[in-house]
Write a protein that binds this DNA or RNA. Sequence first.
RNA 1: GGGGGUGUAGCUCAAUUGGUUAGAGCACCGGCUUGUCACGCCGGAGGUUGCGGGUUCGAGCCCCGUCACCCUCGCCA
Length: 591
Amino acid sequence: MYRTHTCGELRAPDAKKTATLAGWVHARRDHGGVVFIDLRDRYGLTQVVFNPQEKPQLADLAHTLKFEDVIEVAGLVRPRPEGTLNPHIPTGQIELAADRLTILSRATPSPFEIDLAPGRSKVAEETRLTYRYLDLRRGAMQRNLLLRHKAAIAMRKFLDAESFLEIETPFLYKSTPEGAREFLVPSRANPHQFFALPQSPQVFKQILMVAGFDRYFQIVRCFRDEDLRADRQPEFTQLDLEMSFAHQGDILSLIERLMAAVLKECLGREIPLPFRRIPYREAMDQWGSDKPDLRFGMEIADVTEAVRASPFKVFSETAARGGSVKALAVPGGAGRYGRAQVDKLAQKAVALGAKGLAWAKLEKAAAGWTGPIAKFFDAAAQKEIGARAGAKDGDLLLFAADNWEKACAVLGGLRLSIGAEMGLIPADRFEFAWVVEFPMFFHSEADGKWVAGHHLFTNVHPEDAAKMEKDPGGTRSLQHDLVLNGHEIGGGSVRIHDWELQRKVFGILGMTEEEAREKFGFFIDVLKSGAPPHGGIALGFDRIVALVAGEENIREVIAFPKTHKGTCLMTGSPSRVTDKQLDELHIQLKK
RNA sequence: GGGGGUGUAGCUCAAUUGGUUAGAGCACCGGCUUGUCACGCCGGAGGUUGCGGGUUCGAGCCCCGUCACCCUCGCCA
């Protein structure tokens, strides 16, 4: 071994031991005579002293050391002289008096300094990604990847104890027409044919249930060729899981205990169980989102009935058309939001898809509303609307009038940005919730037909099974989404295990059995071969680690992430390939 | 594909209304320095202001185009 101890290990009681350390030169303080080196590895820093009175040649060599050189150094651990202890590092009571130094590797000057402090790097992300091998030496990245490892271990340990088996599924998979755009892989041995990288192991995990494996999980990479976001990478990691002979409640309770185990293991935090279970309808009504941030209040109210007879036509006509008028009371907003700020909110509302933003200020209830729409509402109407919205003196009232979903979503978007602006969102809370009872089908206006709310194999809510074919739009499914602090961190469902029901669903989606067979072929036979009731979930592993680490961007918890455009700045991928490679794959490039 | 933001030395930033030779800290190079821990002191080198074009007597600054990175809408069953 190159070392007897790590750089984070030695303490006062280790004094008088001899030790050998190996690591990177983090800092050098050269006094001409005595030279101090802070030696770094992932465990910490230890001060090494080179004293010319004790070892003159060694001190000379130490003068030549540079940042990020890799060295091995042996010597005596000794307490630091009185008055020179460093309280800022755990090894600050001791130092290593060097009597042997080996330079293992010389380093060229680093483009940026290796910052051990936690938190945001001062260096531009573009530079960090170009030199990721240096960026990963930073304290924050070391901590994040350690946390990621701990989360994965906690999940495996928990699921193993619950009799789950980790089983691998293929990356070279069949292209399927539904869902996200896929990455394609040409098959050399089969000219003109392609594999697709899986968006998720969905089909395979259901097959494992049919095969009798009962309880499966996998921490697995998934691939989607869609545009990126702060929380989306083209390849990302899921905790994928499926269980047989389980009702929806069994799956939810299992995942609750799993998340509790992860937070306990990673942060030492206890979280209260069970999580709230919120029907989709209620999530939209109260928070204007299917992934509500429950860390703060400011809930949305429905005032459609209170404005139905109003002379303000934007409201009354929306109500008459069957739309909704929703209201959001911003506490203290009357004083805080001046005309220019309200205009900005209106711009935001338009960006969220609203036609406009109606508003009123409630300085003092006795004095009535102020603002452009105040004149349309008499004292009684103002009182009723105010009461429904929960408005108090000094509040700003915001209104959205549109179809139900849009009206909710607009105020939901404003709620989030106002909450952030006003500092209402506590950073250190973990507010979990399940969103359930999603619509089984959405009507696609583009194609004029029904599309699956979740995926094609999602089971129908038992209370709605009878009306599914008569009223697809009013049918709820057994989908469940896991939400944490306003982020969707998982989604799944109880699956259809009965071929007759699956055939009905294909029918509602406008697919004949022949078309279904063409698209899903073998899977129909799988379902007909004796399929147990089963269901599962996929958790967004990167997102969970990011939230646990307090990071807003999943790139901060992925060792080698892609840029916003899906490229790798360090390796320079993607890149062109040779004509010979293309030739072997029977591929010709378009001009 | 649409909207917004950023781009000046290796890194982080500055540069009055368009005005002379584009500055600072850190890093780098040379010298000095025996108890520092953001060590200190003296000196030095380092720039196609992302790239291309335009306006102007004169452009880091204004205009057009383009590229890269970030945020976001669409998209992500």
